[in-house]
Amino acid sequence: MVVLPVRFERSPRLHPMLSEVAHPVGTRVVVQGKRGPEVATVRGEPTPPQEQERYGAVLRAATPEDLSRWEDLHTTGEDLKWLLRARARQRSLPVKVVAVEFTLDESLVTVSYSAEERIELTGLISELRGHTRARVNFAAVGPREQAQMIGTLGACGRENCSSTHLQDFAPVSIRMARDQQLPLNPEKLSGPCGRLLCCLQFEHTQYLDLLKDLPRKNARVCHEGSGACGKVTKLHPLAGTVDVTTDQGVLTDVPAAELRRLTDAEIKAMPDTGRGGGRPGRPNRAQPRE
């Protein structure tokens, strides 16, 4: 027995399945999953099974009859999807039917839907039972799962990551955008699903490593070469430089290695006009104007 990673049609996630035959990559197989028998594609090399792991099972290589039936069921599911969408509009139900999927033996039909609030689905269930004898299961999906199943284009112009390679939806926070010095514009930081871009997590660890060698924003520093002191106003992690605002102006793209961070004692000992916290040319409010 070996373990084969297989992929279903609407998700890039790999599912380990026990198999008596080491089918080559790309082979269409019939597997026994949680919902029942389905067609999947082998997407990796065989590995030995691990103890205390739970696996599905590869039943056989898909025959031409299996694939033909699978295509027919896919077509039927697409027709029912549009039918349910039309019925939902007629009933003024605030729901979007994302996908309708049958198992290969047509014993179960799963309707994936998205809704912002709890809704009554009895009418749609009755409508569906008028077209199939399969057991009906309605499954709610979130915005990211919806984008994964439908497939969309990201801001990069390529197909969204959730439909191509992401195995899990890792938490994404606005702090990741701050660490990467990105403008906090919701339109630019949101993906087609309306949530924060999944790709913000890809390079976050590298940015954290780069930020370790840079002074923090608003830190008081002095330039070793010119002796000018001021406040760090912007970081450039990839270049290893920062922008510093002093009373005399702005120093741009200063290498972090040429800066010395001031201690609390040095900051307290500095005159107000030398701390680099005010705007150039603006009088100090602590001193009377002439």
Rank of each mutant, 00 (worst) to 15 (best):
L67A: 06
F202N: 08
T252F: 03
P171N: 14
P16E: 08
S162W: 05
L259H: 07
G281F: 03
A62G: 11
E53F: 12
E71S: 10
L128Y: 01
L80G: 00
T75Y: 07
C193M: 08
L200P: 09
G77M: 06
S68D: 15
D66H: 11
A155G: 04
E127P: 00
H236N: 09
D247L: 01
N218P: 00
E116W: 03
G249R: 09
E266I: 10
K234G: 01
A139R: 12
Q32S: 12
R216F: 06
T273C: 07
V136A: 11
G154C: 10
L73F: 01
A40Y: 03
D179N: 06
T103Y: 06
F169E: 05
A62R: 02
C222Q: 14
F8A: 02
M149S: 02
V250W: 07
L80A: 00
L73V: 04
C198F: 09
R118T: 13
G26W: 04
K81E: 02
Y55A: 09
D105L: 04
P49M: 09
P255M: 08
T103F: 05
R13F: 08
F138N: 07
A115M: 01
H236I: 06
K217R: 15
G36Q: 10
E187Y: 06
L166P: 11
I125E: 09
G277F: 05
L251D: 01
M1L: 11
L251K: 06
P24Y: 07
N218H: 11
R118H: 06
T132F: 05
A239I: 08
Q201A: 12
L14H: 13
P143M: 09
L200Y: 08
L59W: 08
A22T: 02
L124C: 12
L84K: 09
D168N: 15
V2S: 06
K231H: 14
V2A: 06
S11G: 00
V109M: 12
T103G: 10
R43L: 04
D168G: 10
Q148I: 02
K234T: 11
K234C: 11
T122L: 13
L214I: 05
L184V: 15
L73W: 00
H23Q: 12
S11V: 03
E9Y: 05
G276K: 02
E258H: 07
V6C: 08
G154L: 08
E38M: 02
A40D: 12
E120P: 01
L93T: 10
S114A: 15
P288W: 09
G230R: 11
G249M: 04
V3T: 10
R135T: 00
P255W: 06
R144K: 15
Q181H: 09
S163C: 02
L14N: 09
C229V: 09
G240K: 02
E9F: 03
V250Q: 14
N185G: 08
T246N: 03
S162N: 15
R195F: 08
R35T: 10
Y55G: 10
E20G: 14
E106R: 08
